[in-house]
């Protein structure tokens, strides 16, 4: 496994994105009463963001060339 390279940087980018998405201030944006399909907004947002992060990481990993 090549420790350096584009995969590393992409994953670091996903990490930073995650830090942003899953923390304040983004969190406070959705921290309001409201619901999507009966599920509270905040709940949906966090799980959705979480799933997106996982998918991004999976995509980066499985598509890497080394």
């Amino acid at each position: 496994m090549n420790p350096s390279g584009i995969t590393r940087q992409r994953l670091a980018a996903v990490f930073l994105l995650g830090c942003l998405l899953l923390n304040y201030p983004f969190l406070s944006l959705f921290n309001k009463p409201g619901e999507i399909l009966g599920v509270p907004l905040l709940y949906v947002y966090i799980f959705a963001a979480w799933a997106v992060l996982i998918m991004l990481m999976a995509y980066v990993i499985e598509k890497r060339r080394d």
Partner: peptide
């Protein structure tokens, strides 16, 4: 409420850094 969740978000975020840290 949702306050149970952060201790699972932490490892998720950290996983992205595993390529740097854990590998080493």
């Amino acid at each position: 409420g949702i306050g149970f969740l952060p201790i699972y978000l932490g490892p998720t975020l950290m996983a992205g850094l595993w390529w740097f840290v854990m590998l080493k």
